[in-house]
Design a protein around this nucleic acid. Structure first.
Lengths: 409, 409
DNA sequence: GATTAATAATTCAATTCGATTTATTTATTG
DNA sequence: CAATAAATAAATCGAATTGAATTATTAATC
């Protein structure tokens, strides 16, 4: 005996057990979600097609889809004729089957949206503020929710799956950058936002980081289906992001996976700074102000942007150089198939940021790096509120491998 | 209707479907692996304990464990008395139930080890060379395997689960660093190493990156059970690594997850270089040579190292400064619970590298970073060959959530 | 010290439930 | 009409669960 690897085995006390066992009930729940996600991704699919794509037997798929149709989640389309054999019946999601509410809390505004089962935004309410405060925000939850509910029939209201909230980490930080009095922002410290909202909303409430939520939206409704894994970056007031692995959202142990803000990068002058100092709309605001340009159009709406000229180009170049370093760093840890970039700006800005980032990456040392594809997000500046609204879908309808395992503890 | 997220939905053609459906047979296979991994992690556990930890019913656990005992994989220990109720029967892995073979291919030597079911290294053969070449290496596979087999009874040989190979990516690269003629190294380009070994070995052959394999060893036999996720770094001839997420090895789409070698870091003079230029034993070799010290003891055996004084300290400081940057960068992408550092050096060097890395991290800007714990690996310099031998265990006995899903395509 | 209650581990038997297998029907092309 | 493909009904299979019973032990009480 030369060496015993088992002798390194630790004391039982602090060992962390993996997730729990599986059983049939959970298999069924998982397979139902899988079937729905296949229909969702392809728009519409026949039972036979689902059987082929899932590897499940045709009979199993028949039983599952019949149940989903009976629940009203799936609806049958016109039988497709013109091929050998019995005509196939394409099945698609019933857009009216499930509604969900999504809220985005930003540093200048908050939105609540009503989304249908296929990602259509049916209604939206918004409020703006110089900086977010707990009291007014919770009032907005009550009033906004009431307004959205008023537009729905009782039958429709009964089909609301939940209320998802997309908010930045530590809202009270960055007070100075937001231009808010620190004393006011400190009011946030005592607030359990999820609990306070849950007290005011008669649906299941889910709170998630805003950029992670946007990533979720991109996964379901955007470019997600094209890549098995990707890093998602959303440039808002500050930069944030999310991680998708094996076609599923990976939030990480503390929920901060993809929160690339603190990533160290080298700035224009070679100094090392955190990514969020460069890739943020606040920085653009400051650049505009220095150039004597009114920055307020930045905040009204992404569609209110105009081409601000040189300061905008400077900002894009700096952002791209920083993002390029973030791309390389993340690709050295996880071999992402793609990095998807989006933000609270118009599509034409996004296109320029992505192009500049591609160019900046090409200037770096790529030897040995498994380079991800760098692509624009397809969801756009509303990704955070759409992502918020998709959170209830994740917990109830979208495939999550944890559905298979028992929750422990 | 304000905006339709679903309109971003792509054409069906290039959509990537998630993994397939699940069924009972797979549930059983998964639960069996889960039970075994619980026993493995805790050394020995009673059926009731397993039921509690897995969330499975006592009866289910009874059935599964009875079957595993009948297969000879589990053996019952002495009933534990002294507590209220029927004495519990601790069950543990039968070390002789399964053997596996592991091979490590390095740039100066290759090892083949015979490992038992609990990670004990029963036997080891080694060959050394100035640089690795396909012909001699494959001869070593044949001769080494024959030697190891000769030490086993036919019954034991029948219980060999497989042959796992841990080899660096692109063995033919870095010829100049290895001090090998480029023409000779180019011989590797045409070689399908896995296939060539499979032709010479009568067991299932698995090929995996060497650092990823070492990570696997750390996951099963080292500090892995203490952390739900971690980044693993192994400093050998060059640096490599692996990623563990949700207590499972994550190799990534291309198998290069955790391959941090190309990560850009700032060196001593502020210049940006790839991590592998700094964190490598080759660099230490060069430093020793410059200082007029014979570097050959580096390569004979990790136990052959002596304290080389100033050049070693310089190397450790540089490595630590670079690793610290890699730690921050990776923590900004995934909120790892830990970064585990090991390498092809003695334990006392590992301790100094880890301590220096902790100190270097503390000198960086940590605002907003979810800092992982930085810890020493518990497996040590043999991690790669032990990891190689653990590869067959992963494919046959260790829990892998993919066991639940149908393979598609 | 003997008796009884409580507790815990284990297992048997019956039940449930979902996926698979097998066979059949339906619809269409060539 | 033969071949093909989709859809599904009925029967079967396999694994987990449920509920009850068994066994072995400690703790409390007489």
């Amino acid at each position: 005996m030369i060496k015993d690897a088992a002798s390194a085995m630790a004391a039982p006390a602090d060992i962390l057990d993996p997730s729990g066992g599986a059983n049939q009930v959970r298999v069924r729940a998982y397979n139902e979600r899988l079937v729905m996600s296949l229909v969702r991704r392809h728009g519409s699919l026949s039972k036979a097609e689902i059987a082929r794509r899932s590897g499940l037997s045709a009979q199993t798929v028949t039983v599952i889809m019949r149940a989903l149709e009976a629940e009203g989640l799936l609806i049958r389309g016109e039988p497709l004729r013109g091929k050998v054999g019995q005509p196939s019946v394409p099945m698609r999601l019933n857009p009216e089957a499930v509604y969900s509410l999504g809220m985005k809390i930003g540093r200048r505004s908050a939105d609540i949206v009503l989304m249908d089962f296929v990602g259509g935004i049916r209604r939206q309410v918004r409020c703006t503020f110089p900086y977010p405060m707990p009291g007014p925000l919770l009032s907005f939850v009550e009033e906004g929710l009431a307004e959205l509910q008023a537009s729905m029939s009782p039958q429709e209201r009964a089909r609301i799956a939940g209320f998802g909230v997309a908010a930045p980490f530590e809202l009270w930080s960055w007070a100075s950058e937001v231009g808010a009095p620190q004393a006011e922002m400190d009011q946030w410290r005592g607030v359990d936002l999820e609990a306070e909202i849950a007290r005011r909303v008669p649906y299941p409430v889910t709170l998630q980081n805003d950029a992670t939520s946007a990533c979720a939206a991109e996964l379901v409704f955007g470019r997600g289906p094209h890549y098995p894994d990707f890093l998602y970056l959303f440039i808002g007031s500050f930069i944030g992001g999310g991680v998708v692995l094996n076609s599923a959202l990976f939030t990480g142990r503390t929920g901060t996976a993809g929160a690339v803000g603190p990533l160290p990068v080298q700035g224009r002058d070679g100094e090392t700074v955190q990514l969020l100092k460069i890739a943020s709309i606040y920085r653009l605001e400051n650049l505009l102000r220095e150039a004597g340009i009114d920055p307020m159009p930045l905040w009204y709406s992404p569609d209110g942007w105009v081409d601000f000229g040189a300061p905008l180009q400077l900002w894009i170049d700096d952002v791209a150089a920083a993002l390029a370093q973030a791309v390389i760093a993340s690709a050295s840890v996880i071999d992402f198939a793609a990095v998807i970039i989006d933000g609270g700006f118009p599509d034409w800005v996004r296109a320029r940021v992505v192009d500049a980032t591609k160019a900046a990456v090409a200037r770096l040392d790529l030897q040995g790096v498994t380079m991800p594809e760098i692509v624009e997000g397809a969801v756009g500046s509303h990704a955070r509120s759409i992502g918020g609204a998709s959170l209830p879908l994740f917990s109830r309808y979208l495939p999550d491998q944890n559905v298979l395992f028992k929750e422990l503890g």
